[in-house]
Amino acid sequence: MARCPAALPTDHTPCAGPAAVTVLDAANAGADGCEHHAARLLAVLDRGRVFALPHASAGAAHRVFKAAAPQDVRLHRLADAIVTSPATPC
């Protein structure tokens, strides 16, 4: 059985449904995939992004993003964004 394009070659797990999202890397190269394989692909990319396909169920991209990174990693990224933002003048 064919697997989605987002499945990594070393990942032998089956797809968890139809392609629901597109995962893009920093150079905008992308692959459509099921939520399961898209989350695994997003987890190994540096500056990857995820977008829901038009026919995807509501929240698909959000679920993939949440599954791709542990909670503490997302909080560190948020903290980095806050710390590195330009200072507002007083």
Rank of each mutant, 00 (worst) to 15 (best):
V73M: 09
P14G: 03
A68W: 08
A79Y: 09
P70G: 13
C15N: 05
L53E: 02
R47K: 10
E35I: 09
H55W: 13
R49N: 03
H55I: 03
G17K: 07
N28L: 13
A61N: 03
S85Q: 15
V50L: 06
L8Q: 09
G48D: 06
K66A: 14
P54Y: 07
C4W: 04
A20W: 04
L78E: 12
F65K: 09
C34H: 05
T22W: 02
R40P: 03
R63I: 02
L53N: 04
P86S: 14
N28E: 13
T13C: 06
A26G: 04
P5V: 08
D11R: 02
C15I: 06
L24I: 07
A39L: 00
G17F: 06
L24T: 06
V44F: 05
T84K: 14
C4P: 02
P89G: 11
L42K: 03
M1D: 11
C15K: 05
G17D: 07
P89C: 11
T22I: 10
L41T: 01
H36C: 09
R49H: 07
R49F: 01
G17L: 00
A20M: 06
L41S: 04
A67E: 09
A2V: 13
A29R: 12
T84M: 13
L8G: 05
G33C: 04
V64L: 08
P14H: 00
A39D: 05
F51G: 06
R74I: 06
D25M: 01
H62Y: 10
L53G: 06
V73C: 04
D80E: 15
I82S: 11
I82R: 15
P86G: 12
A19F: 05
A38K: 02
V44Q: 13
C34K: 07
F65Y: 12
